[in-house]
Design a protein around this nucleic acid. Structure first.
Length: 483
RNA sequence: GGCGCGUUCGUCUAGUGGUCCAGGACGCCGCCCUCUCAAGGCGGAGAUCACGGGUUCGACCCCCGUACGCGCUACCA
């Protein structure tokens, strides 16, 4: 494909929605796959919705995910600026062109009149409330007079009746609308800002966007955009409307029913690889059974033709699973650096652990965690001696005779010199033989004594990692506390 | 209400007229392994392909209708 240019055009609401992430990702994949350009453009034409720091948050989230764009607000590009509020004169100029060509017109109707009009239309049970073109027939001099006097105005698109508006959507096929169902859309608002519809079309054209890949919520307003391209006599881009991401109850994914911001998932410890992989599969698949992907594989396999039509529920269970899978694929060294930052942000921050030690912990625990922070919660005993002992295990495994047996085990451990896990195991088995009991009778209480829990890596691995001194110390503590 | 889009296991999905009384994955259940917990291996339950009509020798797949869901219907994006 020649000179593919796509864009992600979010409005800065304060955070990056995972649905937005999916849209951005598909745009990114499509651009990279086709050797095209991926552009970030900020659609901030609603002054009432201005959110401090929103653009920065958006950019942060995108960068964290590795969705690097070729042109955008912070890096520039030859079609800039990439923030719509900085392009106001462009939209005005284009709107004036439309007026000159009779494709758009000034409208001086007050919000009150519009409101009344709507009410009347509803009372008459008209199928649709639409602007009545009241100002379309104003003469040039009337318009000029009103403007001169300072009457506030908007600019509307003049939609011709009884036309079929047809366009082809890559994911949905041919879509048809009647122009009778399309309102004379406001293009320039009373405050001089453009509406989304105008700004979007003008920018996409001026920035030479070839494919408009966006959420399904835009499908219904696409006729307006198509009309605008036609009015300007500009070539239309290819449209691809993506299925929506849904809550478990199949309504549009929303804050009310869980986390929707990329930063939420980041804060929870999800790997960007997992989030991206997961979100890529929500509405697209390569047609085979592969579910685990890295970005480069997605780029290689992605195509708009294989995007689904129906909405997809955002299923946390599968995200968790993908996070595990991606974590498992990481090297111990990669996990080490993540674990270190995790430790820095934890109650163990003041403690010092050698890389050598942490690597052993990682090796022992990596198959048992889904998130890096779980090293600290699921195996806190590697970072601090247990403060309490799991009650169910204590009842099950610490019998009246156990103290004496563990006492003996401690003595046998004490005699070992720089013990390996095999040494611990041998010593334990010998102790068990001395009492004529099964190894399990010692293993479980020992686990409880040195880890405080009943779950975790092999007990001899734990002992070796902890080291003899620590093991003996913990046995002593347990002996004093568990009786 | 109008317009548009959608509808295959709980969830994500494969499927483009016969190979499908529907395949994979997550989750769930069971077994094996085992010092525990995981991981791993093996197996299982789970979809009358929304419903009803057509077209066809034959329909998950094509057409029509209905239902349901969702989106849009703003001087919001």
């Amino acid at each position: 494909m020649e000179n593919v240019r796509v864009r992600f055009a979010p409005s800065p609401t304060g955070y990056l929605h995972v649905g937005g992430l999916r849209t951005a990702l598909y745009n990114y994949l499509f651009a990279r796959k086709n050797n095209g350009k991926f552009i970030l453009r900020i659609e901030d034409t609603d002054r009432n919705r201005f959110v401090e720091g929103a653009v920065e948050n958006l950019i942060d989230a995108l960068k964290w995910c590795g969705l690097n764009y070729d042109e955008g607000p912070d890096i520039g590009g030859i079609f800039g600026p990439y923030i719509q509020s900085q392009r106001l004169s462009t939209y005005k100029e284009q709107a004036r062109k439309l007026i000159a060509d009779g494709k758009a017109y000034y409208c001086f109707c007050t919000p009150q009149r519009l409101e009344k009009l709507r009410e009347e239309q509803q009372k008459q049970k008209l199928p649709q409330a639409k602007y009545d073109k009241h100002c379309l027939h104003l003469s040039k001099t009337q318009v000029q007079q009103k403007i001169a006097v300072g009457i506030p105005f908007v600019i509307r698109l003049n939609v011709l009746p009884n036309k079929k508006i047809i366009f082809d959507d890559v994911v949905r096929g041919r879509v048809e609308f009647e122009s009778n169902n399309v309102d004379d859309q406001v293009l320039i608002k009373g405050d001089g800002y453009p509406t989304y519809h105008l700004a979007n079309v003008v920018d996409d054209h001026l920035m030479q966007i070839t494919h408009v890949i966006r959420g399904e919520e835009w499908l219904s307003s696409t006729p307006k955009h198509v009309l605008l391209y036609d009015a300007f006599e500009w070539e239309r881009p290819v449209f691809a409307h993506l299925p929506l991401l849904l809550n478990p109850d199949r309504s549009k994914l929303s804050k009310r029913q869980g986390d929707v911001a990329v930063e939420d998932y980041r804060a929870k410890g999800f790997l960007k690889e997992a989030l991206l992989n997961f979100v890529a599969l929500l509405g697209w698949n390569a047609g085979d059974d592969k579910e685990f992907y890295y970005m480069n594989e997605l780029i290689e396999k992605f195509s708009l033709e294989r995007v689904n039509k129906s909405g997809a529920v955002f299923d946390l269970e599968k995200l968790n699973w993908l996070n595990e899978e991606h974590l498992r694929k990481k090297s111990n060294e990669e996990i080490l650096s993540m674990l270190k930052t995790e430790i820095c942000n934890s109650q163990f921050a003041i403690l010092n652990f050698s890389d050598h030690y942490l690597l052993k912990v990682i090796n022992a625990m990596r198959e048992r965690v889904s998130f890096v922070h779980e090293f600290l919660t699921k195996s806190s005993y590697f970072f601090a001696a247990p403060k309490e002992y799991e009650e169910t295990s204590r009842q099950k495994n610490w019998k009246p005779e156990t103290s004496e047996q563990i006492q003996k085990l401690r003595a046998n451990f004490a005699q070992l010199e720089n013990p390996s896990k095999e040494d611990y195991e041998l010593a334990l088995k010998q102790t068990a033989a001395e009492f004529n009991i099964s190894a399990g009778k010692l293993i479980h209480p020992l686990r409880l004594a040195i880890s405080g829990t009943s779950a975790g890596p092999g007990i001899f691995d734990i002992a070796e990692i902890l080291g003899k001194d620590e093991v003996l110390k913990r046995i002593d503590t347990a002996l004093a506390l568990l009786r």
